[in-house]
Design a protein around this nucleic acid. Structure first.
Lengths: 344, 344
DNA sequence: TTGTATGCGTTATCAA
DNA sequence: TTGATAACGCATACAA
């Protein structure tokens, strides 16, 4: 009987220990005001019986609490986050019955001061923080302050490993780079001259993708990276830099667009005659990229389950706030999926 | 305040209607023994206030009920279902606190009489049926009997559209075929002579995959199907038929393994000299197929989220049994993902 | 330091 | 046909 382990209730423990339910509650939840010996005895008993608190009971009793999750994302003008937020909204709707509220703090781009400012605003207003942090020491420090103040912190999409955040939900960027390289290998065969367009070396995920790509490439002697340009996630810049890249290196046979700015880069690629265009792959199925797949410019994309990332982040915060459950892993990593136009 | 709409409880409705909570319960849950007019009034009030039952309350009260989900799968000796069952187990563990039990009825292969026999055994013992049905009129009839008896029925992995099943969880097989064809196109370019190994034309999903492949191929004049062989999901048969296929058609440049028997087919392919081997793709990342990817025989697979399929099937049954919520869709379709060795 | 009473929202049982 | 009451598991305010 699988469910028998859940049949262990506080009431039962109280009976077995010959104390009241209140005492059991205080002992198990460390609320103090309880004899040290009795507490030890109760804890031991709970341990032995494999007591697990019943979430439904907790939820019911906690109706007066109205925990708030604060969500801080650089989502303005970044279509990828639309899907992340969609996942969050759906999860939030499901948990509204527990009195859970989600409050969004959107920002544009990767300005450290701006992000710090928003974090300052959130202080005292949220019981959990979901953040897509900039990879910066000051941000790490600010996150640690939240954790030290007893706030539950989840990083999503981007991570800061040096911080005390409770856990991370996102993709494996290094593996994304490896997979991209293997994909180009599968598409092109043994020989390729690759042009790479990235967002910014300031962004940890972008760097890791590049490293993953290079790492996988070591096993491919016929592969070489012609050049790597940065577009700062800006479409116009992406267009210009890609145009220059293609002009300078007419021998490029593959393009790897490892971050935003896909549309701009593709516009530059489209200027080449149809037979001369490099095989192009990109990340994420945002609308403009899908359009470029329809046009035949982008051959395949790597998909990182943005909706699930959003849902999972809310999930973890919910479990902590409402059920008092710590995440059982430090990292929740989504697979990098390969998608063609056919299986978008 | 988003959560205010959920603050509508049965108690509140009872007060507003000037009746007791018991009456509200009977009216809203259609348990009978209630005056038609009062029932209508209560329902209207609940509707107006946007009443949503509180799952936590339900869970607590439903501890006395022990709903049982019966799961009938042709899982014996089929590694794909291991993942499906894993997803079910995890979901079941999460719902055990609601007193939910899952009971498995495994079978081997696609014998209609055997499946009917097991369904007969389940009668009266389960409150919901999750089944991977054989595409047969007698099975459809048996499913209808369950539905008529008030049992909630979910088809998973395989479907019978002609039955009254409440909903289907699985993949889009036609799209899987299309995607496979597009993938081979991406890997091989414009020219390909394709050999196809399938399980059985008796299996709806296999037929649909083949149709999807053929449909997508219409846009590829350089593509042709050399031959289609059936292996009955048997490794030895798969090996023999594939061997004959390759012997008869030395010009084959691509192999599409659209069902089980991947290992057997690969063993036949391995007998060809390394430079002469066709580009091979297959479905599902079962261990033996993964091994064939490591060996470099299978270049890519199509992945159909088996774990999520299992989880979702349990989910739907749970929502119905415990929360009384009908599924909001008839079909829950997983994406066909493309995976290389790198992103398995 | 400990016990008791009450309430959260729903359902089931029994009495009216 | 209805209403009252207890119960599910947990948390908390208050009494002892």
């Amino acid at each position: 009987m699988l469910e028998d382990i859940y049949m262990v209730t506080m009431k039962k423990i109280a009976e077995l220990c010959g104390v009241s339910r209140g005492t059991v509650d205080r002992a198990l939840n460390g609320r103090g005001r309880v004899n040290a010996e009795t507490a030890a005895m109760i804890k031991k008993m709970a341990e032995q019986l494999g007591y697990e608190p019943n979430p439904a009971g907790k939820a019911l009793a906690a109706r007066k609490n109205h925990p708030v999750i604060g969500v801080l994302l650089p989502s303005e003008g970044n279509a990828f986050f639309d899907d992340v937020i969609h996942g969050m909204d759906r999860a939030a709707a499901a948990y509204a019955i527990y009195g859970l509220t989600v409050r969004y703090y959107p920002m544009k781009g990767y300005n450290v001061d701006k992000q710090l400012h928003l974090m300052e605003q959130m202080k005292g207003k949220v019981n959990a923080l979901i953040i897509s942090p900039i990879d910066d020491a000051r941000i790490a420090k600010a996150i640690d302050d939240f954790v030290d103040a007893g706030i539950f912190v989840v990083t999503v999409v981007n991570d800061i490993k040096s911080s005390k955040r409770h856990c991370y939900v996102g993709s494996d960027y290094f593996n994304g780079g490896e997979t991209a390289c293997a994909l180009l290998h599968a598409l092109l065969g043994e020989q390729a001259k690759v042009g790479i367009v990235m967002g910014s070396r300031q962004v940890l995920g972008h760097r890791e993708r590049l490293e993953g790509f290079e790492h996988r490439m070591k096993r491919l002697p016929g592969f070489s990276i012609v050049d790597v340009v940065e577009n700062g996630d800006d479409e116009i810049c992406s267009y210009e830099r890609t145009k220059n890249l293609l002009d300078d290196h007419p021998d490029i046979s593959a393009m790897f667009l490892l971050a935003a700015g896909v549309y701009g880069a593709c516009r530059a690629i489209m200027q080449l005659p149809e037979g001369k265009r490099p095989v192009t792959i990109a990340f994420d199925s945002v609308p403009s990229t899908v359009e470029m797949m329809r046009q035949g410019i982008v051959k395949a994309i790597l998909y990182q389950h943005p909706v699930r990332q959003g849902r999972m982040a809310i999930n973890l915060a919910f479990e902590y706030l409402v059920n008092g459950r710590m995440p059982d892993k430090k990292n929740y990593i989504m697979k990098n999926e390969i998608r063609l136009l056919e299986n978008l």
